[in-house]
Design a binder for these strands. Structure first.
Lengths: 227, 227
DNA sequence: AGTAAGTGTTACTTGAGGTAACGGTTACTT
DNA sequence: AAGTAACCGTTACCTCAAGTAACACTTACT
C-alpha cells in the first residue's frame, strides 16, 4: 500500500543501488589507472581504463575533483580498515602506539602510487572542504584530540594542548611516512619502532610533568587515574 | 688583456646581473598577485601584475613550475631569514625550541596566502626535484638529523633514529601550523608554547632513556657530554 | 655597419577538462 | 500498448590556461 500511494515513481528508485555500484566501479578503475600510469592520470585515461567514454564518467561524477574525492574516500576506507583494529585494541600503551603507526605505514607501503596520488595530487582550487587528505587528518586528529583532552582533564592538567598536539602527532607520522616512502632507507618495522619511541617519550613526558608515572608495558588506565 | 683575448663576447656578459634582477622582479609580482587574487593565479594574472605580457615571462622562466619554484625559493629565504637566528642562537634549550617554532609560525602568520600557495599549490607532475616544499623540509630535517645524530652518537646511543625523528619533528610543526592557519583558534604564542612543550618532552625522554638528565633551563652542553 | 643580447607585442597552437546533442535500452506508469 | 523516467553509450564539440611563433624595436659591444 505504502508503495503506490504517492511514492514518487518507482522508476526513480530502481537505480538507487546501481549508481553507487557504478561509482565504486569507476573509483576502482581510477585506482587501477593510477597504479598503471602513475599518479598523473587524466579523465580520458580513467575512462579508457574503465572501458567507457568520458561523458559516462561525468554522469556519475560532477567533476574531476568529485571523482578524486571519491578515490580519496576509498583510500580512507583502506586506511581505516587497517588502523581501526590497532586503534581499538587494548594492551600495553607503548605497543599500541607502535601498532597504530605501523598500520598506517603498512597502507602506505602497499599502495605507494595511490598514496602519492591522494596525498600529493591535489588541486590548488580545492574549495576548502573537498580535500580528503585534510579531512582524514582532521578526523584522526580530532579523535586523538578527544582522547588526549579527556586524559588531560582527568589529570587536572591544562587541556588546551590537546588539539595542537593531536595535529602535531598526525603530521609527525605522515611526514616521516612521506620521507620513508621516497627513500626507503630502513625497514618499516624499524621506522615504526623509532616513531613509537618518540611519541611514547612525548606522552610520557607530559604525564611526568603532571606527576604521573606511566608504565609503557601496561595498558593506560582508562580515566580512572584521579577517581 | 684577459678581457679581449677570446672572452666570449662581452655582449653576452652585459646582462648577467640584469636577468637575475628581472627574475626577482617577476617573483615579487607573483607574490603580489597571489596576495591579491588568492593562491590560484595563472600566468596571465602574473604577467598583468608585472605590467607585461606572457611571452616576456616565458623568457625568464621556462615554465610555470619554474616560476613557482622560484617563488618557493623566495619563500624559503623569508623563512630562513627568521628561523636562522633562532636556530643559531644559544641559550636555554627549551626556550630555543620555542623560538624556532615561533619563528616558523610567524612567517606562516605573516604570509598566509603565500604560504598556502607554496605549500598546497603544487603539481601532480612535479618531477621529483622541483618541489620546493619537499626540498625545504628536507633541508631543515637534514640539518636537524645531523644535530640529533651527533648527540646520539656522543651519548653512545643508537643514532639510527636521527633521520626519521628529524622528519617527524618537521612534519609535526608543519601540520600543527597548517591546522592553526585554517582555524586560528589560539594565539601564536600559545601554540608555540604547546609545541615546544611536546618537542621538549620527546627529546628529554630520549635523553633520559640514555641516563642523561637535561635541564630545560640550561643550554645543551654541546657534545661534550661524554668526553 | 653588423650583431648578440635584450625589450616588447599580437596571434596562434595544444591539451585536458568538461559539455551538447544524439540515439538506444529497460522497466515502471497509465 | 503507449508513454516516459531513468539509465546506457557514442562522437563531436566548446573552453580555458599553458605555452609558442613570428614579428618589430632597442642598446651597446665588435
Amino acid at each position: 500500500m505504502a508503495r503506490t500511494v504517492k511514492g514518487p515513481d518507482a522508476r526513480r528508485e530502481r537505480w538507487k543501488g546501481h549508481r553507487e555500484q557504478r561509482r565504486a566501479e569507476f573509483v576502482e578503475a581510477t585506482i587501477a589507472a593510477v597504479a598503471r600510469k602513475g599518479p598523473d592520470v587524466g579523465m580520458d585515461d580513467v575512462a579508457a581504463e574503465a572501458g567507457v567514454s568520458k561523458p559516462v564518467l561525468y554522469r556519475h561524477f560532477t567533476d574531476k575533483s568529485d571523482l578524486y574525492l571519491a578515490v580519496g574516500q576509498r583510500a580512507t576506507e583502506l586506511l581505516m580498515d587497517r588502523m581501526g583494529p590497532a586503534l581499538l585494541a587494548d594492551g600495553p600503551i607503548r605497543g599500541r602506539i607502535e601498532q597504530i603507526v605501523d598500520a598506517y605505514l603498512s597502507v602506505v607501503e602497499d599502495n605507494p602510487n595511490l598514496y602519492r596520488f591522494v596525498v600529493k595530487g591535489s588541486f590548488v582550487d580545492r574549495p576548502v572542504e573537498k580535500d580528503v587528505v585534510a579531512e582524514d587528518k582532521n578526523l584522526i586528529a580530532t579523535a586523538l584530540a578527544r582522547i588526549l583532552g579527556d586524559y588531560l582533564r582527568a589529570l587536572d592538567m591544562d587541556s588546551g594542548g590537546a588539539e595542537p598536539w593531536a595535529h602535531a602527532l598526525v603530521g609527525m607520522v605522515q611526514n616521516a611516512g612521506d620521507w620513508w616512502l621516497d627513500r626507503q632507507t630502513m625497514s618499516r618495522a624499524n621506522l615504526s619502532d623509532y616513531l613509537a619511541t618518540l611519541i611514547w617519550h612525548a606522552i610520557d613526558g607530559l604525564l611526568r610533568s603532571a606527576g604521573v608515572e606511566a608504565d609503557p608495558e601496561k595498558p593506560l588506565t582508562p580515566l580512572r587515574l584521579v577517581d
